[in-house]
């Protein structure tokens, strides 16, 4: 597959995306900010987190651990269902207060992802999974807002 950040992820010491990530035909849900064109909506964390956090990753001595962390930073965060996305956010809202909207978004958007869109991690206990997209995913146009957070 022609992954979106192939130049970066092929330089890593481990296979990235990880080999157990699989193409799937499924619905995916993601927290997004109001304006769908907001650059935070479909940028992987690698480009959003503070430089200092990247520096911390760079300081990890074990090369494989370091590169796995970097690999994860190039993925997009998805949920397997609207309910899983809502439950996770609602709990953060209960704990953190209303400013959590500034950090994670204000709405849930949905897309039917196809095997040719990229590869997916097995969902964890929160119903969350990482997704490594191909270059031409066009998610900005394909993700449709389905509910407010």
């Amino acid at each position: 597959m022609d992954f979106q950040f192939a130049n970066e992820i092929t330089k890593l010491s481990i296979p990235c995306p990880p080999q157990d990530y699989k193409p799937k035909d499924m619905e995916a849900f993601r927290w997004v900010f109001d304006a769908i064109e907001d650059k935070r909506n479909f940028s992987p964390r690698y480009f959003l987190i503070p430089k200092v956090d990247l520096e911390k990753v760079e300081k990890i001595e074990d090369t494989n651990k370091k590169d796995l962390k970097k690999c994860n930073l190039f993925a997009l965060s998805f949920f397997i269902s609207e309910q899983a996305a809502k439950d996770r956010f609602d709990y953060f809202l209960q704990i953190s207060g209303k400013k959590i909207y500034k950090r994670f978004g204000t709405q849930i958007a949905k897309c039917n992802i196809k095997p040719q869109d990229g590869v997916n991690e097995n969902p964890n206990k929160f119903g969350h999974f990482n997704h490594h997209p191909v270059k031409k995913h066009e998610y900005e146009a394909r993700f449709i807002v389905v509910s407010k957070l």
Partner: peptide
């Protein structure tokens, strides 16, 4: 204790 793309608690 709580984490999503960074620590929360």
């Amino acid at each position: 204790l709580l984490y999503h793309e960074g620590p929360i608690l």
